[in-house]
């Protein structure tokens, strides 16, 4: 029954992927929502137009679904998606360049894609930012709302946040402190597991 399903927004990737392999739509929705900006942002950072980025997005998630059972390290889903999205973008960029070489039309010159100065740096920035955002979102409310409101641009006023959360204004500071502590703990844990993952990859590649 639907009510027996867990809250997927709080589950780690490893557990969500188990539900995805059972074709649970809500688990799949969480994976797509969680990584949408990363998977879509990579082709855009590499200079592809929105319509091509749409194609990369679709290709990447289709490939994930196809290869779910082959994922050897489901805890490294983010890295898998970055690689898949980057490869799909490169394929499109190559075909775009080929198309451009074939078309001598001067109109095509006007449509030349603007390639950012350093796509790799841009992708890394996006990846770091999304990792932070996912950690904040995984804290759940009220921490999620407080931290996203506080660090939004421009930051939301404390009074407005307190009203929305139904908290007395005076308790927002201590709650914020607890939220920051939870974020620190969470990021620390993720950093450790990431380092372990990297070590496993390094050992495996020797």
């Amino acid at each position: 029954m639907a009510s027996d399903l867990p809250d997927f927004t709080r589950l780690p990737d490893v557990d969500i992927l188990v539900w995805c392999s059972r074709r649970e739509p809500l688990a799949w929705r969480e994976v797509v929502q969680r990584y949408r900006r990363l998977v879509y942002g990579i082709p855009r950072a590499m200079g592809l137009q929105p319509s091509d980025a749409d194609e990369v997005f679709q290709q990447t998630f289709s490939a994930l679904l196809r290869d779910l059972h082959k994922l050897r390290e489901p805890d490294r889903l983010e890295a898998w998606l970055v690689t898949a999205s980057r490869r799909a973008s490169l394929r499109l960029l190559r075909s775009e360049r080929r198309r451009r070489r074939l078309a001598e039309d001067s109109v095509m010159d006007g449509l030349r894609l603007a390639t950012p100065v350093d796509p790799a740096e841009e992708i890394e920035r996006l990846r770091r930012g999304e990792r932070l955002l996912r950690a904040v979102e995984a804290l759940g409310d009220p921490c999620r709302k407080i931290l996203l409101g506080l660090f939004a641009s421009p930051p939301r006023p404390y009074g407005e946040l307190a009203r929305e959360l139904g908290l007395p204004l005076g308790s927002l500071g201590p709650t914020r402190g607890r939220c920051l502590q939870r974020l620190r703990t969470r990021l620390g844990r993720e950093r450790n597991s990431l380092n372990e993952g990297e070590a496993v990859v390094r050992r495996g590649s020797r």
Partner: peptide, 29 residues
């Protein structure tokens, strides 16, 4: 960390359109 979060939220990274999201979500329907 906190500065990174603020800068990431201020940056407004591109988002896929509703249609693009729906197509990806429909892969597991």
């Amino acid at each position: 960390t906190l500065r990174g979060l603020h800068e990431h939220l201020a940056r407004r990274w591109p988002e896929p359109s509703e249609g693009t999201l729906s197509r990806a979500l429909a892969l597991v329907a």
